[in-house]
């Protein structure tokens, strides 16, 4: 597939400096987003998924800052720009936020302000990125609410978020992310806070909107089921690194990285016998401030190769190609080659 690359992230590193020391939240992350395609980003909590999303929009909370890497928006076009080089407060960067890159949030309740109507909050996003009158913005907001499948949008526009159900609120959140007509949408765990039925509705809505608008979607989740349903490619993240990248079928049929395999084993199966214990990954994600030496996954890895894994860091996955950052994978590839 020769889909246009919308965003090329290369070797992105983000650090949080505090009195307790420097925490590397992202350590050389690379991936591409393509128009009309979905990149699933998966991993446990604390592995850098959300920081990646916020870095792209340059809204990482202080004291976090980007220390290395590039984030090229629309590479090879006249609109090409490296987001890492922009001043976060600059007019251009604010135009990117919501205008070229939209963000959908995890918590539809807390992500909307209770102090303003749904219409007010959507119109604000519309007016921020289009030079139109208030009346036109209101029509556009109603149009957006209709697009995301909210019934009776003309009346709902004057509702407050606390008057809507969780599913409707998330639809409002999606409408808001689309208000500036962005080509890239980042959805940060958009269904985590919703019940299963609503999840399915929101996911199919996202897919429909993506097809209609040819959006490059970056879907952050820790739910392998969501990945299987939605993603074209998958980036598995661990401790601020992409440890495996592959088309979605490959990730499920022949996962390369031991971490990916462990994640897949931890998915509950409908075929499991009753009372069968769910497989878990031993231990917890280490604090990014106490990053293990060598391969960051080695303390929890069931297949580690001894000194090689504890002392040396495996090569990062080259962007755009299937692969895993793992010595074991390197060895087996060397054998087959």
């Amino acid at each position: 597939m020769a889909d246009r690359t919308s965003l090329a992230v290369r070797d992105l590193a983000v650090e949080f400096r505090s009195e307790q020391g420097v925490v590397r939240a992202l350590d050389g992350v690379s991936f591409d987003l393509h128009a009309g395609r979905t990149l699933g980003v998966v991993g446990e909590s604390g592995c850098g998924k959300s920081v990646t999303a916020r870095s792209i929009l340059r809204i990482v909370d202080r004291p976090g800052r980007i220390t290395a890497g590039r984030m090229i928006l629309d590479p090879g076009t006249p609109r090409e720009v490296d987001l890492a080089q922009l001043d976060p407060e600059s007019k251009e960067m604010r135009g990117v936020r919501g205008g070229r890159v939209g963000l959908i949030f995890q918590e539809p309740m807390t992500a909307l302000s209770v102090h303003y109507t749904v219409g007010n909050q959507i119109m604000e996003a519309v007016l921020q990125h289009a030079d139109i009158s208030k009346a036109e913005a209101q029509n556009r907001a109603i149009e957006l609410l209709r697009e995301v499948g909210i019934p009776r949008p003309e009346t709902r526009i004057s509702a407050y978020p606390f008057e809507l159900s969780g599913g409707l609120r998330q639809r409002v959140g999606i409408a808001m992310a689309l208000a500036g007509d962005p080509e890239i949408v980042i959805a940060d765990e958009p269904t985590t806070a919703l019940d299963v039925t609503t999840q399915a509705q929101i996911l199919s809505l996202l897919r429909r909107l993506q097809e209609e608008k040819n959006i490059a979607l970056m879907l952050i989740t820790h739910d392998m089921g969501v990945i299987a349903e939605m993603a074209d490619e998958v980036a598995v993240m661990y401790l601020g690194r992409v440890v495996e990248f592959a088309p979605v079928e490959e990730v499920f049929s022949e996962p390369r990285h031991p971490y990916t395999r462990a994640l897949l084993r931890a998915v509950p199966s409908i075929l499991a016998t009753p009372r069968q214990r769910l497989s878990t990954i031993g231990g917890a994600v280490p604090h990014p401030g106490a990053r293990p030496s060598g391969c960051p996954f080695h303390p929890r890895c069931s297949e580690q190769l001894g000194a090689l894994c504890t002392e040396q860091s495996p090569r990062p996955v080259p962007p755009g190609r299937s692969g895993a950052a793992c010595f074991k994978v390197d060895q087996s590839e060397a054998v087959t080659a």
């Binding site: 407060e89 963000l103 995890q106 992500a111 302000s113 102090h115 921020q128």
Partner: peptide, 26 residues
Amino acid sequence: RKPYVVTARAKGLTEMRAVLKYPVRA
């Protein structure tokens, strides 16, 4: 620290406007 502040920033509002309209009101 509330998520709606991030929402406001992600819309492309200036920091001043985002802060004055949402968290200050709250």
